[in-house]
Amino acid sequence: MAKIIVVTSGKGGVGKTTSAAAIATGLALRGNKTVVIDFDVGLRNLDLIMGCERRVVYDLVNVIQGDAGINQAMIRDKRVENLHILPASQTRDKDALTSEGVEKILDALVEDFDYIVCDSPAGIERGAQLAMYFADEAVVVTNPEVSSVRDSDRILGLLSSKTRRAEQNRDPIKEHLLITRYNPSRVDGGDMLNLDDICEILAINLIGLIPESEAVLRASNQGIPVTHDQKSDAGQAYTDTVSRLLGETVPLRFHEYQKKGLLSRVFGGGRR
């Protein structure tokens, strides 16, 4: 039985797709049979981040409408065994994604896989609601920035009410906070919300902290999920995140500002 994990945020541009790709890759690298599904119908991008955009033949909507089988639509990852990608459709028809259709697909996948990662679109419309509806766990991606934190709180409200687990009165979805684009230097300078403040405001368990990193753009440029770049801070931080998702206890890294030497501290105003 696969665990269904939704990667969501409310706000756009905070790193949902990057995180979904990195987490799915990390889960598969750890030997779990994983599929990552793009729910952003009309604006698919997961295929680009995963580097398989030229191998897309069929998509999610084709499967829902019966034009293709699920195995025809899934793309095998070139780099990691056991990793599959199910791309979103580029159709502009907003009603193409149906609850019954999504349920049918997930039911078919749940038997064969260990993890199903759902990459949610931004916003709180149909695509986002369907991405979270069937989930067992949620990774809420948040930037240390006011609008992102507020939107994450809105999403938490939806997770606790507009999902299958909520409607059936089952155990609630396990909610995890993933802070991305964290800049310890700006936090130290007092111009960026620190992780304790964000955790306090949102009051959910922190699953990972990804530092703002040049490696992320480099990875998306090349279509190689950043988890593969184990020399980079972001790559290592995603690996840590995956370990925690798998239930391991891993100490937090990359959240502290590397302080300057004594001289620059004396002349730089000291610690704030």
Partner: peptide, 21 residues
Amino acid sequence: KSASVAKERLQIIVAHQRGQR
């Protein structure tokens, strides 16, 4: 510091949002 202003504003708006949730 701007971050502490952000925190205060967020605490208020999030509490309000949760009241309506």
